[in-house]
Design a binder for these strands. Sequence first.
DNA 1: CTCCTTGTGTCAACGGTGTTGACGTAACCT
DNA 2: AGGTTACGTCAACACCGTTGACACAAGGAG
Lengths: 239, 239
Amino acid sequence: MTESERVPAERKRRRPTSSGVVLSADLIVDAACELIDSQGAQAFTVRKLGAALGADPSAVYRYFRNTEDLLLALADRLIGESMTGFGPSGDWAADLRELGLRAYRSALRHPQIAAFSTVRVTGRPHEQRVVDTGVGLLLGAGFDEATAVRHYHVLVDTALGHAALDAGVLRLAPAQRAADEQAWQDRYGSLPADAYPSLHRVREHLPLMAASAVERALDLLVAAMRQEAADREAAERGR
Amino acid sequence: MTESERVPAERKRRRPTSSGVVLSADLIVDAACELIDSQGAQAFTVRKLGAALGADPSAVYRYFRNTEDLLLALADRLIGESMTGFGPSGDWAADLRELGLRAYRSALRHPQIAAFSTVRVTGRPHEQRVVDTGVGLLLGAGFDEATAVRHYHVLVDTALGHAALDAGVLRLAPAQRAADEQAWQDRYGSLPADAYPSLHRVREHLPLMAASAVERALDLLVAAMRQEAADREAAERGR
DNA sequence: CTCCTTGTGTCAACGGTGTTGACGTAACCT
DNA sequence: AGGTTACGTCAACACCGTTGACACAAGGAG
């Protein structure tokens, strides 16, 4: 494990900044989280972070190699938050769905962070725990090792992909978001039946497009996995 | 869609730049496309774009209000490109998979653009054509109107979600991307079996995580839809 | 208690970024 | 031929991430 923090996490010399705050990696992540939540991802800069902390911006580099490193720490914190209170129910498929949904919700709870946090392999403790849990559910359902990894990967990436998408919508200015939702009615609702026969036929149902598809996506994925497991079991029994 | 170009597209005065190139909105989009393709999304800056065009960077602002505006124009071009040459094969499920894959690929061809272009409803002819085609395939498969819309929505959003995710990966600097791929081996490959039993068991297969899951996601979604259609047909036949 | 090491906050600077306003010139219209 | 003005250019602004030198106080050693 390559150390991502600049120093081995144990600090002895604790010198307060000029404004009296005693810095720490956790405190910096706190401040970054708050900054992004309140001001938007666009407002996240090392300089503003320094100002929010009451410290010189460059002090951050005593704790993180660079901004990327800091954002990875932020991402792992989100992963940890998302899994608090999760306990397997016994139904592996339902648990997997829940796992994906939690990843989605936590990513979406901070739309500004989701845009970049969903991308990276943090390789940090919280992420490792989640992966172990998810893969374990699939192994328990009887899938072989490679298939378990692949299915876990599909499930999580689909959940995070929808999060990235929906986070982008949330990031739009409210007025623009409303306009985009209207667009499904305005631009699609009255198309000529001869040129767009299918669209015309389903025109009443187009507003469904405005909502997130993540739950239905997870439903379908889990259904397919269930079917696969059932088929495999049947084949083994008949063998 | 609101007009994104600064002037009504019709140019009369065509003055060459100091290097002899005659600028146009199309030419600028061309250059931006080429720049991103060859140098990576990281290399896309207004200044480099100006250099590539053989013009002062600020000349771009005669054609586009800002960089976002330029990137939206680029996105418009992508939608058109993505569907050229698509023809239904007769297998509705395979066609839907292909539709999703095309959306994914075109979004991913320009990662920088995908990050936000996947979010908006353009409501333009190209988009309308695609939606009509996709919904039509599902109606043809026997799904009712609401289900057809929902399933189409799931499929496209999943494809675009994966595109947004994978685009983020591509946006990383090459060295960092390689490091991320290694991370699955380095940080996950040698975890203790007692604390992470499932991870330990599948450790050989973890590099699978580095690849995109989009094809398998589409496979599973389409499989679930096929199953649903088959179940419905069986129910109708038995009724 | 004093001294020394060194961790860590601060400062200034570098090279980059997007964007804007003033300016002049050359391309078109009359 | 002359006047308008579109548009390319230039210089400047206000930011950005990051780094190296520096100062100083916290903590250990004696």
